[in-house]
Design a protein around this nucleic acid. Sequence first.
DNA 1: CTCGTTAACTTGACTCATTCAAGTTAACGA
DNA 2: TCGTTAACTTGAATGAGTCAAGTTAACGAG
Lengths: 144, 144
Amino acid sequence: MTAPEAPTTADELRRVGLRVTATRVALLETVRHGNHLGVEAIASGVRQRIGHVSLQAVYEALHALTAAGLVRSIEPPGSPARYEGRVGDNHHHLVCRSCGVVVDVDCAVGEAPCLTAADAHGFSVDEAQVIYWGLCPRCSAHSS
Amino acid sequence: MTAPEAPTTADELRRVGLRVTATRVALLETVRHGNHLGVEAIASGVRQRIGHVSLQAVYEALHALTAAGLVRSIEPPGSPARYEGRVGDNHHHLVCRSCGVVVDVDCAVGEAPCLTAADAHGFSVDEAQVIYWGLCPRCSAHSS
DNA sequence: CTCGTTAACTTGACTCATTCAAGTTAACGA
DNA sequence: TCGTTAACTTGAATGAGTCAAGTTAACGAG
């Protein structure tokens, strides 16, 4: 018998019930290799790999992949949506007020207590979204 | 000597260096009496109090009061900005995925540990913004 | 109290991310 | 190989929020 292979990008798409298209494969790889990219940046990454794709196709694929749980979107107030390939773990983001750069941070306290509000007021909470605002090292050096 | 008076809304505006206008007084009161109102709702609240005001004046005043720390804005992804009058304490929000209602929650763990990321990557963090997503009691009853 | 400065407001045009609509193409199960 | 329908294309539309230019009025100086 053959050794178990790592699943290809195409396999991952099939697994979640999505059709395998050049656009989606390229998009998923672009998002994974990029670093919290915006829609425009993703579109140009995809185009570099496979030629022309419409912006709408990118939006559509991003929604599909987000719904399928293969990518995750981050929407810091005041900036267009960004996407990342790191999913399934409960991690958060650090955003620079000055240059807008986004970096990942692990959960502040232990595993996933971020999911527990002090008093949920009867809500059934399924996700906690944390954004830390501040100045990145480069920008805070700049302003001092 | 007279007893110390509670500061009026006008006093509060003056204290932060803003001119006292009917628009701002009415806006501040509207936001404080309302419950995470959006811009349109604030505009109509203000109009009920003092008659006509332009939407732009509302935006402008909201920015001024936010910058001055008298009101705070909440911008859950996928919904227009909302404003609240509760400021200065480190509290967070619970948003219903279905109906969009927003309720306040206190910090998950103790006083303000929310401000501490596990590893700040050299950032100087000044604010942590937490949004819990879920279903409010009414909506979760509805869907079951 | 009057005046001048300038913050605050008004109207109206504009931007930009995202969505909607209608028609075409191509993935993939039968 | 074919038919169904998800995915893609182009193009127009939406909606929150901003920008610009001109007018009004708050308030400190005289």
